[in-house]
């Protein structure tokens, strides 16, 4: 079982967390183009390799976290509070959803 190093609680079993989807999705409620909105709803990058994603520490601090994980190995290289700028300094525009 993978360990997730919660920035608030420390390393915890992944069963304490809920995966909350890929991070950095653009949400535009003003759009008139269903295709744009539905890309936001349904489209996932689903990369083989590193992905930026959100986790929710359900059975812990109840905080949303942002992380970078390798989908091939499940290795985490970065975990931070939701909305944090990435390890490379790049921000998610706060829309960590």
């Amino acid at each position: 079982m993978i360990l997730i190093d919660c920035p608030y609680c420390g390393p915890r079993n992944s069963t304490e967390f809920r995966h909350a989807g890929e991070a950095g999705k653009k949400r535009d409620v003003t759009t008139n183009d269903p295709a744009v909105w539905r890309r936001y709803l349904y489209q996932q990058d689903n990369p083989l390799g590193w992905v930026r994603e959100n986790w929710f520490h359900t059975a812990g601090c109840r905080q949303f976290l942002c992380a970078e994980r390798n989908t091939q190995t499940n290795e985490f290289r970065w975990v931070a509070p939701a909305g944090s700028p990435g390890p490379d300094g790049a921000s998610d525009n706060g829309s960590a959803r």
């Binding site: 992944s14 069963t15 809920r18 083989l48 989908t71």
Partner: peptide
């Protein structure tokens, strides 16, 4: 499994 992954290692859970 509860999170996406391409890893095919099984889990104890």
């Amino acid at each position: 499994d509860p999170y996406p992954s391409y890893s095919m290692r099984g889990s104890l859970e």
